[in-house]
Amino acid sequence: ADIPWAVKVEDKVKYDAIFDSLVPVNGLLSGDKVKPVLLNSKLPVDVLGRVWELSDIDHDGMLDRDEFAVAMFLVYCALEKEPVPMSLPPALVPPSKR
């Protein structure tokens, strides 16, 4: 479905800047590079584990630019006390992954 992506353009720009600051290799960030950033949110590790599961859409243990944006979006939602969903809502699936 061509539902608009839940991640707003201005947020995506912000997430991309963080993504690039973590020095992606072949456009991918490994878990150990992303982990400190997500831990910085002070969210419980089990919540971050769920954020990772939902954002690592191809389950390759790495996050690409879009997957990283999904992870950041879920972290910000959790910080605003929005519970992390059990499954990725269709609106959150990056257009590149549909």
């Binding site: 584990g49 990772w52 599961e53 243990g61």
Partner: peptide, 13 residues
């Protein structure tokens, strides 16, 4: 129940 995911690809598990 949420799939706990595999620790091999999840740095938090």
């Amino acid at each position: 129940q949420f799939p706990t995911g595999s620790s091999s690809t999840n740095p938090f598990l």
